[in-house]
Design a protein around this nucleic acid. Sequence first.
DNA 1: GGCAGACGGTTAGGCGCCTAACGACAATTG
DNA 2: CAATTGTCGTTAGGCGCCTAACCGTCTGCC
Lengths: 188, 188
Amino acid sequence: MPLLMLKDLPRYECLLEAAREYPDLDPSATEVFLNLLRTGDEAFRVTEDHLAQHDITHGRFGVLMALWGNCHREGRETPLGPAEIAERTGVTRATVTGLVDTLERAGFVARTPHSDDRRMTSVALTLAGEAVLAKILPEHFRQMAWLMGTLTESERKAFVQLLTKVMARAAERPVAVAEELAVAAARV
Amino acid sequence: MPLLMLKDLPRYECLLEAAREYPDLDPSATEVFLNLLRTGDEAFRVTEDHLAQHDITHGRFGVLMALWGNCHREGRETPLGPAEIAERTGVTRATVTGLVDTLERAGFVARTPHSDDRRMTSVALTLAGEAVLAKILPEHFRQMAWLMGTLTESERKAFVQLLTKVMARAAERPVAVAEELAVAAARV
DNA sequence: GGCAGACGGTTAGGCGCCTAACGACAATTG
DNA sequence: CAATTGTCGTTAGGCGCCTAACCGTCTGCC
């Protein structure tokens, strides 16, 4: 998350006070929200710092992981097109173009034209790309394990359930936004 | 989070399988990590979309909120300098310069030179800035309340505790990174 | 067969964020 | 009082990400 969050989250009393002026403010919901974004950002930066040591950004890492195989090389050699990579990593095709440019310049991936469909291009890991992944991944996994090291297995399970609930809620957003836009349009 | 996350998180069986090849991979830790980043990103985007309707980005919003008062206007009129804003919002001073530029162009904040110390500049909300906040905040609060609406009070409490634990762990990161860099330096 | 439309990848332009470096000023020191 | 050191805000340059628009290519339908 390229983000930006209030460094010192507001104390709960401050939320309670603000709630008196803004009846829409739900103190406990706000607290969860702020902590969620803040923690996500913090976790993000932990891995970001590590990846940076290998000149890899999260964007580039996402591309490499997508090429590495979604469920760990389902078909062994699975070259993907930029559109497919964009789909799997959740960025736009335009962004993938830039990321692949950088990775290709670094020698970690290679573009090869598709024989059947001349619109398409295949992107595949090079040996250097596999090598850098082999170098990065163990430490990357250790980072995640260390970060969650204070949580017991049952805590982790509960954590994932809570996150999943919120994620499901957020996924309904398009509907809410559509309604909102409709309301906004009606107001004009 | 400017981010980028695997759109479809890997299934747990895939993590188990990958763990066989990479002993450092802790499946449950990885699962929590991925869900955390993904959910944080999703929540981030929910508010991002709403703010965008008012031509406000998260960066700009952070500046406005910082000016609005950390614990909701502690001293009523509290003009801040860019350095202070950067400190509170967690971005660099250079970034604040750009954000304030944009906000000033939009008429939401105003810069005034400091009388005592001529290095310093004060940034304060204008009336238009307060107005746009008054327009945005109610809906913003509603978004957060809606997003957490599926969670009970006790779930929220547990959630915050889990997030806090991970955040505390992440805060230890500088130490770990320092050690790592020392190791890397020793290797050369 | 021919043409409209859909789809692939890229380009152009913009914003947020960063680091590194600058010029102006203030505070500290000999 | 002069020189160093530190701080403040800004600038310059880079990357990731976006949207909008662009070409080249394939495809479906008549």
